[in-house]
Simulated assay, not measured.
Amino acid sequence: MEKFVKEVLISEEEIREKTKELGQQISKDYEGKDILLLCILKGGIMFMTELSKHIDVPVEFDFMVVSSYGNELKSSGEVKIIKDLDQSIKDKHVLIVEDIIDTGLTLNYLCDYLKGRGPASIKICTLLDKPEGRENPIEVDYIGYSIPNKFVVGYGLDFEEYYRNVPYIFVPNPEEDPRKRGSK
């Protein structure tokens, strides 16, 4: 695995501290309100789980699977809702929790889609933001880290569905993928 990690971008400790800081800010901003944390799967699950531990107002969870990537490293440009919400968001304060915002295509589509369901508010919280990759303007309310326009893996982000469990964010060296050496 050592050769596969070309560069550690954000350490586990840095993620933990930033997530705590974001949770405290969200708690302050939503004081006196309930929040529906809407996790965008699969990548957002680790971030949402940790973030929710640091939010001091009542929260509900719901999940969606929305994709514009498939198994590619670059967005296909077509957004697909693979799993929709399990509950109504009418009159609820929705906080979309994302692992990373790149082109903005998926989040723009998702926000428009959700607005039609009558929420009290919709805000966005992302662990990672790649402003250089932005093709569609999107207002992000809470950003953990702005990162360079590099392909990153770990802490929920995958490389061909693997390595989501790595507790830090790194730039991979695909030629050194341990799975290619028979260690599946």
Rank of each mutant, 00 (worst) to 15 (best):
K3C: 02
F4N: 02
V5H: 05
E7V: 13
V8I: 15
V8H: 10
S11N: 03
S11D: 04
S11A: 07
S11L: 11
E12G: 04
E14T: 05
E14F: 05
E21C: 10
E21Q: 09
E21W: 08
G23N: 05
Q25E: 15
Q25A: 14
Q25F: 07
I26T: 01
I26K: 04
S27P: 01
S27A: 13
E31P: 03
G32V: 01
G32F: 04
K33V: 08
K33G: 14
L37T: 06
L38T: 05
C39H: 11
K42V: 12
K42R: 14
M46H: 12
M48F: 12
K53S: 15
K53M: 14
H54S: 11
H54G: 06
D56W: 04
P58H: 11
V59S: 08
E60N: 07
E60R: 14
E60M: 11
F61P: 03
D62E: 03
D62P: 01
V66Q: 01
S67V: 01
Y69I: 03
Y69T: 04
G70T: 02
N71V: 03
L73D: 09
K74W: 00
S75C: 04
E78W: 06
E78H: 11
L85K: 09
Q87S: 10
Q87W: 04
Q87N: 14
H93R: 10
L95V: 09
L95G: 06
I96F: 10
I96S: 01
E98Y: 10
E98T: 07
D99E: 01
D99A: 10
D99V: 05
D102Y: 00
G104S: 02
T106R: 03
T106V: 05
T106G: 03
T106S: 08
T106L: 00
N108F: 00
G116D: 03
R117K: 12
R117Y: 06
A120D: 02
A120R: 05
S121L: 02
I122H: 14
L127K: 10
L127W: 09
D129S: 07
D129E: 05
P131M: 12
P131D: 13
R134C: 02
N136W: 11
P137T: 07
I138V: 15
E139I: 10
V140I: 15
I143H: 01
I143M: 02
G144F: 05
G144C: 08
K150A: 12
F151C: 06
V153M: 07
G154H: 07
L157A: 13
L157Q: 04
L157H: 09
L157M: 15
D158E: 02
F159T: 09
F159V: 03
E161M: 08
Y162I: 08
Y162P: 02
R164K: 14
N165A: 13
N165V: 08
I169W: 02
F170I: 00
P172D: 15
E176A: 15
D177W: 05
K180E: 01
R181F: 13
R181H: 13
R181Y: 12
G182W: 00
S183E: 14
K184S: 14
